[in-house]
Amino acid sequence: MRQETSRAQAPIPAVAGIGLRFPHHRAVREDRPAIGWLEVHPENYLGGGAAIACLEAVRRDYPVSLHGVGLSLGSVDGLDPRHLDRLAALVSRIEPGLVSEHVSFSTAGGTYLADLLPLPMTEEALETVCRNVEVMQTRLRRQVLVENPSSYVRYVASTIPEWEFMAAVATRTGCGILCDVNNICVSAANHGFDAYHYLAALPAAAVGELHVAGHALRELGGGRQIRIDDHGSAVSAEVWALLAAAVARFGRRPTLVEWDNAIPALDVLLAEAAQADTILSRERDHAQAA
């Protein structure tokens, strides 16, 4: 007999979702706001107790995406097998619609460095990321998405434009791309490249999800500025415009609003998601008119 499931369907719809963070656990669980889907960092749900109980409860009502921040796909040491096993167990338990990670590294010599650190855009780094993505996809037995980084440094050694690096990872491993338009906006400003050119260079068919978030502008004196990807404010007009361009280029995709610092009331986050939905709907109207 087929076992009936009481869960929301797993696939992530091509509408706006929000990143679920601890301050909103109770509100989302009890009030079930009208939002298309939720995304969480699996690192916050690897143990037992209240956190995973909440995630299992909301999973009954919403499609959920697992967006890793700790697997360190760019690590030359390879992936931490225990971390990968625990992620695999969580994937089995939650049955997420999407699983994603970052094109960056966060461990070195067995130490976790607690940030998404930038890789040099070199053939060695590309081979390293591809090797690790293949290990991840084999262990999880599914396609994953990899997210383009935001960064504050470039390396002298870099030889590959970042957009080509991202496309190559997708081509070589069969993974998808999580296109974070806020990250493109931040890095374009910090390193002086054209964000729209970046979007144009990504393979549209590989893009499986979009991210938007707020970032900060830090004045360094002497008229110098750097943009900080802090996810600590509302999405800027510049990033909304870039999202519209991304949707026009790639089509409608699941689109996440991330807010990780100075987390606002849930209503504020939902209003940001509504803004993303407006942009996604515009593309649907365009498509129908065409």
Binding site: S75, V76, F105, A108, G109, T111, L113, A114, D115, L117, L119, P120, T122, E124, A125, T128, Y155, A157
Partner: peptide, 17 residues
């Protein structure tokens, strides 16, 4: 060109020390 391993070890020095 620095090896990726050296660069990642260097970043650990930056972050931790």
């Amino acid at each position: 060109m620095p090896k990726l391993r050296d660069l990642q070890a260097g970043f650990a020095e930056v972050v931790l020390a």
